[in-house]
Nucleic acid binder design. Structure first.
Length: 471
RNA sequence: CGCGGGGUAGAGCAGCCUGGUAGCUCGUUUGGCUCAUAACCAAAAGGUCGUUGGUUCAAAUCCAACCCCCGCAACCA
């Protein structure tokens, strides 16, 4: 039995749960359930990123205490994860006192690689942020959102000296000590690594109050990444506890937009702490709508809660794990979702369960013990390579094969001709087949898999209502 | 010449690394079956594999150039 640690990205809680978050949770959950199926001991982290100005301001706008605001939002995300049928073991919030204390200790341990420097740049008082030189030129020195000219400002920030680790990181990535998936992202990151400057990791308190104070400097507050990335180890108890049981992580799931932080700054932090690097960073794509990025301004945002409400957890998991590519950007449309539901979940699988169970019942066939199942090598290889969509396809192919086999063996003919022995052999074979497929489906569709398992053991009874009624 | 991904049937994709009859799902048409959720099974139609050139007995696949789409370019799920 191995100890497996799986992590998800912690969403920034200034908004509601998004389909993109769902994808992250589902991939991690599928991985986790598969590992548990193999008999491994799994810890599955989830959490929320709760510091920063945006959250502070949003709470002020709503006129609620900031802590109350983040409490509410953290709850929304926890509920969301449950709705997805994902089972985490640990939930970390960056406002947890333990986390805050541990991040400060981590900061101290990193101090050899941290220095204070002056940052100077163009600043918009409306946006309350610095903008890049390029942006300055494009907007001709005036903020388009606030119609105010940018101001030249200077402030002191702490920086993390990434330069100390670049060579080692390049080596770790190239040698696959830390494996980046999909493969093509590795090139992208290696190139990016070369151009990466030291990272600004604090803000003056005058600018940012809602965050973890920098130890031994009351004028500075930690800024997002140091705080957020640490969650993966603070939740395990680092540095108060020995985390070597579960660290290094078996897999860390992230969106492609934040892959760079997880493959550049994060390994650098770990190296500085003397901790081993995560084995795999899995970067998934974005979910598009008709080929376009979802955005509030275009107004094409798909609310995952609406999808869950209309079609339920299992249909949601089915679409997002099989029709959304594990690694690349893919489309969500209601048409595609509904086609997949009706043609595949209802017709292929739901109907198969119905017809086979009915057949068994009509002919008085039952199995006292669940048949022994071996998990196919091909499926395991795909799962071990995090190719969940392909593994799901592999399982689905078997679903279709059972439908073919039924047509081929024609049990109803055997029944009419009273070939009881032959009929019972055929049914036994079919029930064994469906039990096997069901096992392969269980990391993806846990609830359905449970139901099917119950139907085909002891006295076989078709479900009273179809598993997936057509819509 | 910033970096990366992609262009294969009406749609969505696989195949490319390791050249050898172009494949899968959906959709369309036709046939079969009756155990099942008007489901299931089979067959057919449908492609100059972005363009041009090169290597080769042989190129979707390897090489070169070009065209087009899409991401990223440091607070974005």
């Amino acid at each position: 039995m191995e100890k497996i640690y799986i992590t998800t990205a912690i969403p920034y809680v200034n908004g509601v749960p998004h389909v993109g978050h769902a994808l992250d949770y589902l991939l991690a959950d599928t991985c986790s359930r598969y590992q548990k199926m193999l008999g491994n001991d799994v810890r599955f982290q989830a959490g929320t990123d709760e510091h920063g100005n945006k959250i502070f301001q949003k709470a002020k706008e709503l006129n609620v205490p900031v802590q109350e605001y983040v409490d509410e939002n953290a709850k929304k995300f926890q509920d969301f994860i449950h709705l997805l049928g994902a089972e985490y073991t640990d939930f970390v919030r960056t406002t947890d006192k333990d986390h805050e204390k541990r991040v400060q200790e981590i900061w101290k341990k990193l101090s050899d690689h941290i220095y204070l420097a002056k940052y100077e740049g163009w600043y918009c008082t409306g946006c309350e942020r610095y903008i890049t030189d390029k942006e300055y030129e494009e907007n001709h020195g005036v903020c388009p959102d606030h119609q105010k000219p940018y101001e030249k400002l200077a402030e002191e920030n702490y920086y993390f000296r990434l330069a100390d680790f670049k060579d080692k990181i390049r080596e770790a990535i190239s040698s696959h000590e830390i494996l980046i998936l999909p493969e093509f992202r590795e090139k992208e990151i290696l190139k990016l690594l070369d151009d990466s400057p030291d990272v600004s990791i604090s803000r003056p308190k005058s600018q940012l109050t809602w965050g973890v104070p920098v130890p031994d400097d009351e004028n500075q507050v930690m800024y997002v990444w140091m705080d957020a990335l640490s969650n993966y180890i603070t939740v395990l108890g680092y540095p108060d506890k020995d985390i070597s049981d579960f660290w290094p992580a078996y897999a860390q799931f992230v969106g492609k937009d934040i892959l760079r932080f997880h493959t550049i700054l994060w390994p650098a932090m770990l190296m500085a702490l003397g901790l081993p690097l995560p084995k795999t960073i899995v970067s998934h794509g974005m979910i598009l709508v008709n080929g376009q990025k979802m955005s509030k301004s275009i107004g094409n945002v798909v609310d995952p809660l609406e999808v869950l409400d209309k079609h339920g957890t299992e249909a949601f998991r089915y679409y997002f794990l099989r029709h959304i590519d594990t690694f690349a950007d893919s489309d969500f449309t209601w048409d595609k979702f509904e086609d997949a539901y009706n043609n595949e979940l209802a017709n292929d699988l739901g109907n198969l369960v119905q017809r086979l169970a009915t057949m068994c019942k009509k002919n008085g066939f039952s199995l006292s013990d669940a048949p022994e199942i071996e998990i196919s090598k091909e499926y395991q290889d795909l799962m071990n390579e995090f190719r969940f969509k392909d593994a799901f396809d592999f399982a689905w192919d078997k679903v279709q094969n059972i439908n073919k086999k039924i047509d081929d063996k024609k049990p109803w003919v055997l029944a009419k001709e009273n070939k009881e022995k032959e009929l019972s052999e055929v049914l036994k074979e079919l029930v064994t087949d469906i039990t096997e497929v069901n096992k392969l489906l269980s990391p993806f569709l846990p609830e359905t898999s449970d139901k099917i398992a119950k139907i085909f053991v002891n006295e076989i009874m078709p479900p009273e209502t179809p598993l997936f009624p057509k819509k």
